[in-house]
């Protein structure tokens, strides 16, 4: 039986071995605060865009070959694609296209790689791996199968950050970015208002803990609209988009 000090030390060693990032007193810079928020947003953008793409991809197999145009319109993305084949390729993989999933994934990496000391090598490695998986998907005969791997790695990244980052502000900043992006995309796609309301509730529970500066009135408006006891209108969705975009 060791002394209390030894046991504490052993516990500390175990924590370190597991790659925990115990930086509870770590002063967060303005730059890192922004990067964490945007890292959260971009990971969600990649994840949900892949979901949306999968849905449209399926629809276009034996249905409307121009189904992608509706998605683009809802997301206010310029339709620069010649046809569905061009869309399938460039919306996913074109590095120079700021609306592509690849582009968002690289922005995830840009934000993550400069915060290794905050999020940890283990977390960062999932974003790097997602990029490699994206490379594989680009060359693949069946890219949808490989793109599933990209989504899996984003989920693994979220799980890892939850597990290894002990600083609550850092975790909350990532999550605030993630939820903001989700509310934005879901609203643009006119998803079930109950799902949006749930995300708004999550945001309300999280945002004050992140220390980020935000507009309280806008968050309240989002909550009021998403919880309104009526069938949501197009304007309701638009109002949520407008408020979430100007929230931070």
């Amino acid at each position: 039986m060791g002394t209390g000090v030894t046991q504490a030390r052993m516990f500390e060693d175990q924590i370190n071995f597991a790659g925990k990032h115990d930086m509870e007193k770590y002063a967060l810079s303005k730059t890192h605060t922004d990067e964490l928020y945007w890292l959260g947003r971009y990971t969600e953008r990649v994840y949900t865009s892949l979901d949306l793409f999968a849905s449209v991809f399926d629809e276009m197999i034996d249905g409307d070959p121009e189904a992608y145009k509706v998605m683009l319109r809802n997301l206010e993305i310029a339709d620069i694609y010649a046809d569905k084949k061009d869309f399938n390729k460039r919306y996913c993989f074109d590095r120079s296209n700021p609306d592509s999933i690849r582009y968002s994934l690289e922005r995830c990496f840009d934000n993550a790689v400069i915060m290794r000391e905050l999020i940890g090598s283990a977390s960062l490695s999932y974003i790097q791996e997602a990029i490699y998986e994206m490379d594989t998907a680009e060359k693949s005969e069946s890219p949808m199968i490989d793109l599933q791997g990209v989504q899996d790695l984003i989920v693994a990244f979220w799980g890892m950050t939850d597990d290894v980052i002990l600083d609550e502000r850092v975790r909350n900043l990532l999550k605030v970015g993630k939820i903001v992006e989700r509310i934005d995309l879901y609203s643009r796609m006119n998803k079930d208002m109950k799902r949006i309301a749930r995300e708004v509730e999550r945001l309300q529970g999280r945002i004050d803990k992140s220390g980020i500066v935000y507009d309280r009135k806008r968050l309240q408006r989002m909550s009021d609209i998403s919880h309104a006891d009526r069938h949501p209108s197009f304007d309701d969705y638009q109002m949520i988009v407008e408020n979430v975009e100007s929230l931070i």
């Binding site: 930086m23 002063a27 967060l28 810079s29 303005k30 400069i114 290794r116 000391e117 090598s121």
Partner: peptide
């Protein structure tokens, strides 16, 4: 990461009088 130090490109650092400081958010 391994030594638990801040990594900065200098934009968060500033000098005041005889001291160097890190500015947080």
């Amino acid at each position: 990461e391994k030594i638990g130090a801040h990594l900065t490109d200098g934009s968060d650092l500033f000098v005041e009088r005889d001291g160097l400081y890190f500015r947080d958010v």
